[in-house]
C-alpha cells in the first residue's frame, strides 16, 4: 500500500509542471502559433522565480523559514513572479511570429537559446553562489498533510499528503482553462484563429490580439510550470529544466491539443518518470530486469508511435504555424 501512495504522490509531483506547461502550449498552438520555446520560457520563469524566493528567504527570520504556512505565501509570490516573467519573455516570440511574420520555429529556437544564456550569465555575474550559476533556496513548501482532508483514509493518503500547493493550482488551472477554451466567447475565437484565421477575421475577430493572448497565456503558464518543476524536484535552480519543456510539447501532442487528454498524457508521462527515477522505492519494478533508461525513453517513444497513427488525419490546429497575412483572404 505504501508504495502505491508513493507512486501517486511522486506521479503528481512530476505531472503537474507538465500539465501546466502543456496547457500553456495548448493556448498558444490553438491560436495558431507554434511554441517550441516552452523550454526556454520555463527556464526563464524558474530563474526569476527562484531568485525572488531566495531574496525573500534571505530577508526573513529563521523562524519564518521553518513555517510551512509562510512557505506557501512565498511560493505563491514566486509562482506569480515566474508567471509574469514567462509572459514577458514569451512576448518576444509573439512579436516575432505575429507582427514580424517570422518563422515560428526559428523564433522559438532563439528563445530556447536565450533563456539559459541569460540565466547563467546573470547568475554568475551576480555571484550568487561563487562562480556557479546555481540559485539555491530553502524548500519550505512541502505540505506533509492537509488538515482534516489528510485524515480521510486512502484518499487522504493519495491526494492530501506529501504534496505541494502547486498540485491544486494545476488542477484549478486545468478547470479554468477548459471553461475558457470551450465555454467563453474569447475561447471560441481563440480556437477559430487556430483553425481558420481568415474566417475569424472576416467575422470581426482581431486575429493579432487573440494570438497575442494565446502566446501570453503560454508564457504565463510556462513560467509557472518552470518554477513548479524546480521547487518540487530540487532545492536549487541550476540553469536547466532538464528538457521538461520539450516533454511538455510531447504531452501537448500526445494530448491532441485537448485539455482533458493533456491531463491524461501528463499523468502517464509523470508515471513513467516516477518509475524511472523512483525505481528502487517500488518493490515490484525493482525486480523487473528493465533498466531505468527504458522508462525514461517510453514517454518519447509513445509520443512518436501515437503520432505515426494520428498524423495522417491530424487533429492539430489547422492554421498552426501559418503566418496570418491580412492580404491573403
Amino acid at each position: 500500500m505504501d508504495s502505491i501512495y508513493f507512486i501517486v504522490q511522486q506521479m503528481l509531483i512530476f505531472s503537474i509542471p507538465l500539465l501546466l506547461v502543456a496547457l500553456g502550449g495548448m493556448f498558444s498552438e490553438r491560436s495558431g502559433v507554434i511554441n517550441i520555446a516552452l523550454e526556454g520560457i520555463m527556464l526563464f520563469g524558474a530563474f526569476i522565480g527562484a531568485l525572488i524566493i531566495r531574496l525573500i528567504q534571505n530577508n526573513v527570520s529563521p523562524a519564518l523559514l521553518s513555517s510551512v504556512g509562510f512557505g506557501q505565501l512565498v511560493l505563491i509570490i514566486g509562482l506569480l513572479t515566474a508567471g509574469i516573467t514567462g509572459l514577458l519573455f514569451s512576448l518576444l516570440h509573439a512579436y516575432a511570429s505575429i507582427n514580424m511574420k517570422a518563422n515560428q520555429v526559428i523564433s522559438g529556437t532563439a528563445l530556447n537559446l536565450f533563456a539559459p544564456a541569460i540565466a547563467i550569465f546573470a547568475a554568475r555575474s551576480m555571484a550568487i553562489t561563487g562562480d556557479t550559476q546555481k540559485v539555491p533556496f530553502t524548500n519550505q513548501f512541502l505540505i506533509r498533510k492537509v488538515p482534516l482532508l489528510g485524515d480521510i483514509p486512502f484518499i487522504g493518503d493519495l491526494f492530501f499528503k506529501q504534496l505541494y500547493i502547486s498540485t491544486y493550482i494545476g488542477f484549478i488551472i486545468l478547470i479554468l482553462g477548459y471553461i475558457f477554451l470551450y465555454k467563453t466567447k474569447t475561447g471560441l475565437r481563440l480556437r477559430a484563429c487556430g483553425e481558420h484565421p481568415q474566417a475569424a477575421d472576416s467575422a470581426g475577430v482581431n486575429v493579432f490580439k487573440i494570438r497575442y493572448l494565446g502566446v501570453a497565456l503560454s508564457g504565463f503558464l510556462g513560467g509557472i510550470g518552470g518554477l513548479v518543476f524546480i521547487i518540487t524536484t530540487s532545492t536549487e535552480f541550476n540553469a536547466s529544466v532538464s528538457g521538461y519543456g520539450f516533454l511538455a510539447l510531447a504531452v501537448l501532442i500526445f494530448g491532441q491539443w485537448k485539455p482533458i487528454r493533456i491531463l491524461n498524457a501528463a499523468l502517464f508521462f509523470g508515471l513513467m518518470k516516477t518509475i524511472a527515477s523512483g525505481y528502487s522505492g517500488i518493490p515490484i519494478i525493482k525486480e523487473l530486469p528493465i533498466p531505468s533508461e527504458v522508462y525514461k525513453m517510453v514517454p518519447f517513444l509513445a509520443t512518436l508511435i501515437l503520432l505515426s497513427f494520428t498524423s495522417i488525419k491530424s487533429q492539430a490546429p489547422r492554421a498552426i504555424g501559418e503566418i496570418y497575412d491580412t492580404g491573403k483572404r
Binding site: L247, K296, M297, F300, L304, S311
Partner: peptide, 18 residues
C-alpha cells in the same frame, strides 16, 4: 505517416540520449 519532423526529431533526441 505525415509526422511533423520537428516534433519527431525532438523525440528522437531524447530516445537517442537515453
Amino acid at each position: 505517416r505525415n509526422v511533423n519532423e520537428v516534433v519527431a526529431t525532438i523525440m528522437m533526441n531524447y530516445i537517442g540520449i537515453y
